[in-house]
């Protein structure tokens, strides 16, 4: 289980590197969506591992808020391109 978590952390480094390297704002938005989803899934995984419902609830909220924030930010940036 420990190795599985470390593999998940390593997978999280890929979009972080992509966000640092790529200059396109939409590529960065993709990396943000990917990382926030990965963080939510990892929190859920750890909550099942420790049998802790409190962490599981936080994981669900990270998943929801990540998506909502991504949508709001994408709308504002899209309006900036239009003008």
């Amino acid at each position: 289980m420990n190795l599985l978590l470390i593999a998940m952390i390593a997978a999280m480094l890929i979009p972080m590197y992509q966000a640092l390297k790529d200059d396109d704002i939409w590529q960065k938005m993709l990396a943000l969506g990917s990382i926030s989803s990965k963080a939510g899934i990892m929190t859920l995984f750890i909550s099942v591992l420790r049998d802790d419902w409190m962490i599981g609830a936080v994981g669900a909220i990270i998943l929801t808020v990540g998506n909502a924030g991504l949508m709001l930010l994408a709308h504002i940036i899209k309006r900036m391109d239009d003008l």
Binding site: M12, M16, A19, L20, I25, K28, M29, A31, L32, I35, S36, A39, T43, V58, I62, G66, G69, L70, L73
Partner: peptide, 11 residues
């Protein structure tokens, strides 16, 4: 956008 990434990891 990177601040959003930091927020997700911090949470």
């Amino acid at each position: 956008v990177i601040r959003g990434i930091l927020g997700a990891i911090a949470a």
